[in-house]
């Protein structure tokens, strides 16, 4: 798979242009913060009634990545659904679509803060997944190593000739990866936010999504 290649805990990984993480030796595809059903949840809570197309848009991208990689394992790194009710309320068409994607491969749902506990769908439901030497969980822990996490939806900015480009990005250093959000309707937290600065080592790199993904020193 073409993308940005890097190493974490001695494991060779590739960040795909879509924001998915590919572990070729294990045929493992990892995506984070899908936030499926977000528009439904917002409407239910009396918020904005956004265009109800983000779930199909996200699933479409996921399908493309799964087909292109031939992934045998898919790890969803938490906040896969915007809340537990959103997973119940997923329209039939989209629920079936998701079931088709899951068929014939190992599928791991990691709990997120938005979707704690078991959800409607089949697959393995875990608080976190240890797949040595990597540790998959939703929120990064200070002091952990070989950790792949999501939650923050990091984004970073690059100034080019008076213009500023802001893109979702993956952050990584020798200890961990913080993945970009994969869902269509997801905002971002700028990499210079103190939470991220505290988590990441000084030499951390931000890889801006795009084709190809573009590494820069993590803006702080």
């Amino acid at each position: 798979m073409k993308g940005y290649d890097f190493n974490l805990a001695g494991v060779k990984l590739t960040l795909l242009p879509s924001g998915a993480l590919w572990w070729p030796d294990e045929w493992l595809l990892c995506v984070s913060d899908l936030h499926l059903g977000k528009s439904e949840r917002m409407a239910r809570k009396g918020g904005a009634i956004l265009p109800p197309y983000e779930t199909r848009d996200t699933l479409h991208r996921l399908q493309t990545d799964i087909e292109a990689s031939g992934a045998r394992t898919v790890v969803c790194l938490g906040d896969s659904f915007d809340d537990l009710e959103a997973s119940d309320n997923l329209p039939e068409v989209e629920a079936q679509w998701l079931n088709r994607l899951m068929a014939g491969r190992r599928w791991v749902w990691i709990e997120g803060n938005h979707d704690p506990g078991p959800i409607e769908f089949a697959g393995t439901h875990l608080a976190e997944l240890l797949h040595p030497p990597l540790h998959f969980r939703h929120i990064a822990r200070v002091g952990a190593a070989g950790e792949v996490t999501g939650h923050f939806h990091p984004k970073a900015r690059l100034h080019i000739k008076g213009r500023t480009v802001s893109r979702p990005c993956m952050l990584f250093d020798g200890d961990r990866v913080i993945m970009p959000s994969y869902g269509t309707y997801t905002g971002g937290l700028r990499s210079d936010h103190s939470v991220l600065s505290r988590l990441m080592r000084p030499e951390a790199i931000a890889v801006l999504l795009g084709d190809p993904p573009q590494p820069i020193p993590m803006p702080r």
Binding site: L50, P51, Y53, E54, R56, D57, F152, H153, T184, Y185, T186, G187, G188, L189, V195
Partner: peptide, 22 residues
């Protein structure tokens, strides 16, 4: 903290893609 808002550009692109007569 993390921004709850996200860019209107994404909504615009989504509508253009899935609901062009909106």
């Amino acid at each position: 903290g993390r921004q709850a808002t996200f860019s209107a550009d994404i909504l615009y692109d989504t509508l253009r893609k899935y609901d062009p007569d909106h």
